[in-house]
Amino acid sequence: MNTSARALLALLGTASAVIALAGCSVGVASPAPASQKPKPAASAAATPKLPVVPGYDVGEFPPVPLFRLPDLSLLDSASASGFTIDIKDDFAKIPGVTVSPAHCDAGGEVVAGNGSAYLYGDGSGNYTGSDGSIQNYGDGSGSFTLNGITVQNYGDGSGNYAGNGVTIQNYGDGSGNYSDSTMTVQIYGDGSGNYTGPDGTIQNYGDGSGNFAGNGVTIHNYGDGSGNYAAPGLTIENYGDGTGKLNGKDIKVDPIAPVAKLGVFPPLAALQPITSCGTVITFDAGVLFDFDKFSIRPDAAATLKTVAAALTEYKVANAVVSGHTDAKGSDDYNQTLSEKRAASVVAALKKAGVSTSLTAEGYGESRPVAANEVDGKDNPAGRQLNRRVEIFIPASL
């Protein structure tokens, strides 16, 4: 085999390349008898690598996502003005990336999930802190107007809110609506509801089934262990019996967990504004990393380039990059993985020329923003939210 043929074979490394190059001259006087011919060695390169959803194993795909309401205590723009960086537009078109005002405790630490009402996860729909406690804002009836925001609280869990482009109707029976300039949420109080936002649309039928569509991706969960996923160049069918197809090829795959029911709409209470302590940029781990890995994927370069540009444009002096995992695996393993992922992001941003002073921290599974399990059963949508990397940009006072 001549030098150019060897180079081409090494480059292609596929079964078709082996067949195409089999007729090339190998420079021997005569072929060896069949009995003396060596058997071809099995080559890993001859087996094509199966495509995967970024951040997931072969045949797996993301769950129908959770609904999330913003931190109502930070809706007063007057309290947040000057303390948060208005960079939402920079990241609006990147799937799996969100930007929000940071809510901190008295010591200045970002409180994971604080003020965020995931409308299912613990089954209640009430505000749930990272420690699992339920906190009810209700403080009686009344109405007031503050900084252009009008709140009417009827004392029975129902009420209305209007201000800064946000409207909330809470009917006091577990149902309600939320809308702002970017999203609408409808909760019907029977476990079902709808979401429409920049990242797509979600329908939850309250019976374990649901759909998601957005950014060229569609997900169907039929509630009986079966479902399907479609994206450019990748289709997955799960039949719910341990079998399925990946781009038409038969695979073995575990049944899909049902979509958890939506909880009730959180009780509406008088707004008690707090001052934001900064800005949090949150990345779904699947945006940056392959399944169970900490090396940043090559296709994440554009995302990190956007981050680097924002940090430079807004002259961010310092920021904290933190890694977080779900509760699968041992505490030690998750802690190490979270630390390595945070360090990888810091290294990538520095390589992109960011002058911001960056600190990497890992918290493993200790700071969930949603339940990993519901009633003792796996909650894939909650675990997906917990697998994340956050960049906290403290307020510049």
Rank of each mutant, 00 (worst) to 15 (best):
D180G: 03
T201S: 12
F144S: 04
G227V: 10
P38W: 07
I202H: 03
G193T: 03
D207S: 00
A42E: 11
V99S: 06
I219M: 10
V26D: 14
G193Q: 02
Y314E: 11
L66I: 01
I393L: 12
G174V: 06
D378V: 06
N372P: 06
N170D: 15
P267T: 08
Y137K: 11
T47I: 10
N372L: 04
S124E: 05
P198L: 15
I187N: 00
R367V: 07
S330D: 14
A231H: 04
S77L: 04
A327I: 03
L119V: 05
L337S: 05
I202N: 01
N2R: 04
L304P: 14
H220W: 14
D180H: 09
V259M: 06
R367E: 11
A80V: 08
V259P: 02
V110S: 00
G206D: 02
D71K: 09
D332Q: 06
G323C: 14
E60P: 05
L271A: 06
I19T: 05
N136T: 13
T145D: 10
G227W: 09
L8V: 06
A310H: 03
S43I: 13
N372Y: 07
N177I: 06
V110N: 01
A29Q: 10
L11W: 05
Y118R: 09
A34H: 10
D89A: 12
N164D: 15
V99G: 04
N2W: 01
G216H: 09
V307H: 05
K37T: 08
N136F: 11
S16M: 01
K245T: 09
A5C: 07
A213M: 12
G242T: 10
Y127H: 14
P54A: 09
A15K: 12
L262Y: 01
P273M: 02
D173I: 05
T218L: 15
D224L: 00
G142Y: 02
G248C: 08
Y154N: 15
S355M: 09
G115E: 04
V354A: 08
I281R: 12
I219A: 11
D331W: 04
T98F: 10
Q152R: 07
Y333I: 01
A44E: 13
K293D: 14
A42N: 15
N177T: 12
G364M: 09
N204D: 00
G165K: 15
D290F: 07
Y127F: 13
G172V: 10
A347S: 15
S355D: 13
P266D: 02
S16E: 07
P63F: 01
V320Y: 08
G362Q: 12
Y195Q: 04
N2L: 04
L8Q: 03
S357Y: 08
F265P: 02
S133G: 11
K328I: 07
A22R: 12
L288Y: 05
P62C: 07
N194I: 00
T47R: 11
L358I: 14
V374F: 02
A260W: 00
G125S: 09
G113Q: 05
L11K: 12
D90Q: 05
G225L: 08
G286D: 09
A348I: 14
L66S: 04
G129D: 02
S124M: 02
P394Y: 03
A162G: 14
Y171N: 14
Y178A: 10
P54N: 14
K88T: 03
D57G: 15
N228L: 08
V280D: 05
A106P: 00
G278M: 07
L12S: 11
Q169W: 09
N160W: 06
F265W: 11
K350D: 10
T279Q: 13
